[in-house]
Every structure is written in structure tokens, then in C-alpha cells.
Design a binder for these strands. Structure first.
Lengths: 235, 235, 235, 235
DNA sequence: GATGAATGAGGATTCATTCAT
DNA sequence: GATGAATGAATCCTCATTCAT
């Protein structure tokens, strides 16, 4: 009974192939942009033939979509994990900023592709990717709502505007830094942006200058009163 | 060999032609993106022939560049005029936000083209357009610096990050609203964004509004306490 | 975006395709010249699509280059074979002339393309094709040098000029005959040109000038002898 | 009677304009080739507008034709003047070679244009330019015929072949020298080519070395015959 | 399943020529 | 006469996609 197990000797796991293709595509799209990247180039980079890509992805557009979806999913999952171990609105906001910032820095052009190239894809905005990106930015809104509930955040803030300021700000900041070929200090920028959003840029309204003196006096009075209690009781 | 007899045509003022071409190109680029727009389409929309475009613009890229430059120049000039009649950091910041927001709302895709399509234009980032866009966002930084000088703004804020938050936030906000086919309340959003940047979202450690009255009362109490100590016991 | 459904097609051996393309291109280039020939025309003649040409050749210029290179190689190989079985400078020179002449007659415009169209190809002259064409005409120079060594050829001849006279002469001759729609007698022209180069056109060097005087004297002697015959006979 | 002679104050003599246009066109055609030269460029170089060229020349092709015709006429006239003061076939052949060579060296690409670019001009070959170029090369044939008549040239030479060898040789030689960026020694090359054509490259069939000895012997015979006449009969 | 040769529409750009000014 | 803006066909080349092997 020669039960020769002749497994696929050349066939690669589907997931592995796809990962290679997506990696190649992602790098190419990021580096040169969607239009300037050819399927032939992606195939070559992935070490496969052009035709094979079409076994896994409907077309070039679909490939970009899948890549963007994967990116959103990955970062969103990271957000979930982060938030599980962090409490306090400020700390949670900072975590979201930090995570998104590091993701954008890791592949600065990918996020922009969403806005840049998707526009050719007429009806796609209302569907898959649009939903995902909304869900993605939803984490921040949820955290802000919790902050409102807990009293840490003003209840009258424009939620979507805050969301756009955070994500738009990160995108702009990374891209303007890239233009300047400078490095970004991940922690410093996270802190700064978090600060900025939380407390703004205005010089804090100085506390009434006398109040401390008054308190001092009151404390002294209280001290004395307490000290004189024994006599005070008599009458 | 293009040895063909041509139709008739009309000679038009150069500026008029260019305005028509740029309008057509601007709309097409905005609507469909740079790559998806053909010179033939632009020519048709402008009511001229393809060849004529090349009398005025070096190539397609140049046409986009000119359009973007014009946009920046126009809005920058508007900024200058605005700021001439407004004083106070907060009011000036709000004016910049308001002006930029209304420009972006007027042609929401144009500003994005800068970031979306320019990336193919290798060395151009370091040159013309990059310079202009830097100069453009410079107005906000200058206003912020004045605010620091006048004590209205915290001296330790990260200037470029604030800049990126404002312009990136506006861009994202407009584009996310457009996706939802909702209208933007220009004044409300300007106010909100200005507020956000100036004072942040944290619940202010608001000094109790009665504090001075309280202090007064406390002081009177203290006075009485002090004064009545000796006699206070007696009737 | 070329997202169209295609017709069916046949996969063919690479060499076969290339041969067809080159044949079509060669005929078109020869007939109409390089500039007047469109890639579309070549593709149609070759029975393929335009895009396919670009699978084999970088661009139109490259296609011309390849064709010219092939032609030079073919004729050069023929020269080699010819010379292997022929000895004697004159016979060898004639063989080169004959072979080149017949190649030029077979495709009269091809050789001229080299000189006519290559000039646009700026730096190409110093590279591939220039080298090949130099090597090509080198055969004649080598044969001439052998002739000098063997004493059959004057050692003081300007080698490159002779080379240019032979090849330039053939080219001109064929093209002027073609203009006149006349046929060329391959063997006769080969002989004539060979003769021309070998011995020139001058009437063969007059016999030493004194010999005539000598002959005169001899004639006079003879006359006298004849006149004196009557007496001479007596005695 | 104010007979104000208001001559053309801006209008240039027609001939002058044409000369400028032709100069500009000639340089451009020579430098870049016919196809690569645009009418716009010629107009700019000539300091006039594009439209003006069409006042003088039917079209681009016609302009080239005129230029080539002028060139042929100029050189042909020079040939005529040269030949008026030179006699002897060899000297006359050399004069033609020298004159043509110097004309080709002066504008090396012009002559080639005749062969290179004219081919697009289907039926033109049988007409104007073809006639002129035939007439042009006719001078050499005429000189050769005179040489035959005077006995200086072998009567059996292939006239047209000699013509093609001379003109084709010059063309090739100049172009191969240009490729090498070397200078041509006008006189040396003229001499060499003239020599080559006149006497070929073969080592001259040196007069039989014994001929003088033979003559000597013949003279001695004659002497003896003369001396021995009286006695000769006797003894 | 994988391949990669073949497709062919599409697009940017050029330029000879015309003709209203 | 001169101009030069306008034309628009023509061309090379690219590349997403298909399908016979």
C-alpha cells in the first residue's frame, strides 16, 4: 500500500502568494503612485507573472483597494489592543495619535493614496473603502464620547471636526516633514498634538492672583480658631 | 505628415484664452483627477483645439502647476487683505481659517491635487510649487508668532504642527463632509476650529464663577471671627 | 484606461515573430524612409499589433538599428565566406565589390538608411552601429593591406579613401541607376569598378620616349638597306 | 509739389528676405535633418514669422528643394569658372574633385540631404532636382569625354561609374572623417582621389627592365649594319 | 494553477499650414 | 505684406487585461 503523499511540490500557499503580491504592490504604489505603477512591475517585484495577479485580484483597482483595506484593518486592530490597556481620555487620545502617527510614518504615502487615487473609482467611495475608513476614524470619536461622558471632555465639541483635525493634522505634518527630509520624533509629536487638541494654544487664564493669599489668611484664622477652641467653648 | 487644410477659427485675447483653458482644466482635474483627465477633454471643454493648449503651457504637468499656483496666489492675496483689517491673534487666526475654508469649499479637490498628484513630479516639490505652498501656510505661522509676542499665545507651542493641524484639519473636514453630501456651515466650522485650536477640548478647570463672592464672604467671616474672638463668647 | 476586452491571438515562436517584424520594418523603412514609416504600418504589415513590436524592440529607433545591424552582419559573413576561397588581391577586391554590390542591389535603400537616418540618433554614431559599419568596411582595408604586403598594391595608397571610393561609389552607382529605372549588370559593374580601382582610367603609360627615335633610326637603316639591295645583292 | 518719396520703410528686398530664410533653413536642415527641423525654428532663426515663409515657398518641401537647387547651382558655377582656366584632363578632373570636396566639407550634410530626404518626395526625383543633380555631375563626364578625345583617357571606361565613384567617394570620405572628428586635408585628398581615379592602386606594370639593353643591342646591330655596308657584302 | 505573449485603445505631444487681423 | 494664433491629424509608446499553452 504505497500511500505516497505527493503534496503540492511547487504550489505555494495562497496566502503567502497574496502577501508577496500585496507587499510588492504596496511598495510600488507608495513609491511611485497608483498610475505610475504598472502591473508588470508589481508582478516582477513579487516574482510571479502578470497573469497570476489576476487569479487573486479582480483588477489593478481591486488590488489597491485590498491593500488599503488591509492597512486600515491592521492599524485598527492595533488601536483596539492599545485601548484595552489604557484608560483616561487624554491617555487614550494620545494612544490613538501615537499609533496612527507611527503607522503613517511607516508608510507615509499609503494613507494618502486613499485620498489621492481613490477618486477615479467613482462609486467606490460609498462602498467598501469608505466604510472602512469611517470605521477607522470612529475609534477617536468613541474615545471622545467616553471623555464627554466621564466629564473629561467638553460636551459641546464638534466631534467630527476634532477627528478631522487629528487625522488631517497627522497627515499634513508627516508629509510636510517628509518634504523637508527631516525625521519626526514620534513621542514628541504625539505629545504635542495631544496637548494641542486637549488644551489648545491659548495662554491659560491666570488664576486670580490674590486667592492664595486669602487662603493663607483663612488657614491661619482656622488654625487660630482651632487653637482657641478650648476657650471658645466656655462662655 | 500633417498637411491638411484647416477650419477657420477666431483669434482671441491671450488672457481670455488662458482663463478658459485654466477653468476647464481646473474643473476637469478637480472632478476626475489629474491622470484621468485628458488634454483632449480639456481642449474640448475650453472650446479650443488640443494644440492651442500647448501654446500657453509647456505640457500637462505645467498646466496643473499653473492652476495650483494661481489658486495659492489668489487665496494668499485674500489672506493679506483680510489680515490688514483684523487685529488680535484669535480674530486673525479665525480669519485665516475662514478664508482657507471657504476657498477649499469653493473647489474642494484642488488643494488636494497638490498633495495627490504632485508626487509624480519628482523634482518639482523642491521648486516652484513647494515654495509657494510653504509661503502660503506661512501666514498662519506669522500670526501665531505675533500672538506669542503679544502674550496671547503660549510661547512653547509647536508652530508647524499647529499649522498642519489647521490646514490638514480643514482639508479632511471638507472632504469628509463632501463624502456625506452634507453642507458645511462656513462660520460655524470656522468658529469651532478656531476654538479648538485656541482652547482645546478639555473641560476647563474653570474657576468657580462665584469665587470672588465666596472669598468676600470668607473674609467677612474671618474678620468677624477675629474681631469677635474676645467678646464673641459674651452676649 | 485601457480596460477593454481583447480579441484572440496566436502565440508564435519569438524568432519567427521577430523575423516578420524586421521584414516588414525593413521593407517599409526602405520604401518610405524612417520618418515616413509609422509603427502602426509596420505592425499591420507584420500582421501583429503595435504593442507587440515593443515586446521585442525598445522603440522605433532600436528597430531600425537592429535591422541595420542584421544587414551588416549578414553581408559581413558572406564576405568572410567569399574570401576564404579566393586568393590574389585583385580577385579578393572584386569579390568584396561583387558581394557588396549585390547586397545593395537587393535592398538599395537599406544601406543608405545608415547614413540618412542615423544622424538624428545623436550619440549612437559613436556606439553600436558605427562600430559595426566600421568593421564592415574593414574587410576591404584588410585585403588591401595584404595586397601591399604581397607587392600587388602600391604601398603609398590612402587606404581609407580607397575604401570610401569603393563603398561610396557602389552606393551612388546603384542609386543613380535606380533613378533611371535601369538594370545593373552585376558582373560587368563589379569588373569595371575593380578595374577602375586597380588600374585607373589613364591611358597606359607611354613607352619610353627614346625607343621611337631608335625605331626611326632602325627604319631609316632598313630603308637604306632596302635601297641598297640592288648593289647589296651584287658584289 | 511735395513729392515725398515714401519708400517702403520697413519692407525688405525680397531677395534679401529669401536669402535669410534659406540660410536659416540650410543650417537647420544640415544640422538636424529635414524632419527634425520645424518651420517655426526656421522662422525664428530667420527673424521672421512662420507665415512669411509661405509667401516665398510653397511648403517645407519646396524650401528644401530650393536650397538644394541653389547649392548645386553655386557649385556648378564654380566648376565652370575653374574649368575655364585649366587645361589637361588630369588637372581638370582634379579641379572638379577639389571644388566638390571643398563644397561638401563646407556643408557636409547638405549634399546628403539630397539622397536622404528627397525620398519622401515621390515624384520629385524625376523632375527639378533630379535634373539639376544630373547636370551637376555631368561636368565630370564631359571632362572625361574630352580626355578620351584627346587620348588622355582610356576610351573604354564606364563613364557613369567613374562619376559615381568620384562623387560617392567624396561623400563617404567626408562623412567618415566627420564621424571621427578629424580634419580633412583638402589638397591632399584631392590629389589622392585624382591619382586613384587616374592610375589606380596597382603597382605599375614597370616597363620590362631589359628594354634598354634590347635597344642597345638593336643600336649596335644598326651601327654594324651601317658600318659594314660597303664591306658587309664581302668577307 | 501558472504563465507571458499578444492585444489595441488611449493619451500626450508635435508641427506644417492657414487666415483673420 | 506680414503676422502668429489656431488648428487637428498623426505618431510613438504604454499598459491593463486576456487566454492559449
Amino acid at each position: 500500500m504505497a500511500e505516497v503523499v505527493r503534496k503540492s511540490f511547487r504550489r505555494r500557499p495562497k496566502a503567502e502568494r497574496m502577501a508577496e503580491i500585496e507587499l510588492a504592490a504596496r511598495q510600488a504604489f507608495s513609491t511611485k503612485g497608483y498610475n505610475a505603477t504598472s502591473m508588470a512591475q508589481i508582478a516582477e517585484d513579487a516574482g510571479i507573472s502578470e497573469g497570476t495577479i489576476y487569479k487573486f485580484y479582480e483588477n489593478k483597482r481591486d488590488l489597491l483597494l485590498v491593500i488599503l483595506l488591509r492597512w486600515f484593518e491592521d492599524v485598527r486592530n492595533a488601536h483596539q489592543l492599545d485601548l484595552q490597556k489604557i484608560s483616561g481620555t487624554r491617555a487614550r487620545v494620545r494612544a490613538i495619535i501615537h499609533r496612527h502617527l507611527s503607522a503613517v510614518i511607516a508608510d507615509p504615502d499609503l494613507a494618502r493614496l486613499l485620498f489621492a487615487e481613490i477618486r477615479d473609482f467613482e462609486y467606490y467611495r460609498e462602498t467598501e473603502l469608505y466604510q472602512i475608513s469611517r470605521q477607522y476614524t470612529r475609534v477617536l470619536i468613541d474615545v471622545l464620547k467616553e471623555g464627554i461622558a466621564s466629564g473629561e471632555v467638553r460636551p459641546d465639541i464638534p466631534l467630527t471636526l476634532v477627528r478631522d483635525v487629528v487625522f488631517g493634522g497627522i497627515e499634513h505634518h508627516v508629509s510636510s516633514f517628509l518634504s523637508g527630509y527631516a525625521d519626526i520624533d514620534l513621542n514628541a509629536v504625539s505629545d504635542d498634538l495631544c496637548d494641542l487638541v486637549m488644551v489648545g494654544i491659548t495662554v491659560p487664564a491666570a488664576p486670580p492672583p490674590d486667592i492664595e493669599a486669602v487662603v493663607d489668611r483663612l488657614e491661619r484664622v482656622a488654625d487660630r480658631l482651632e487653637a482657641g477652641k478650648p476657650e471658645g467653648g466656655g462662655g
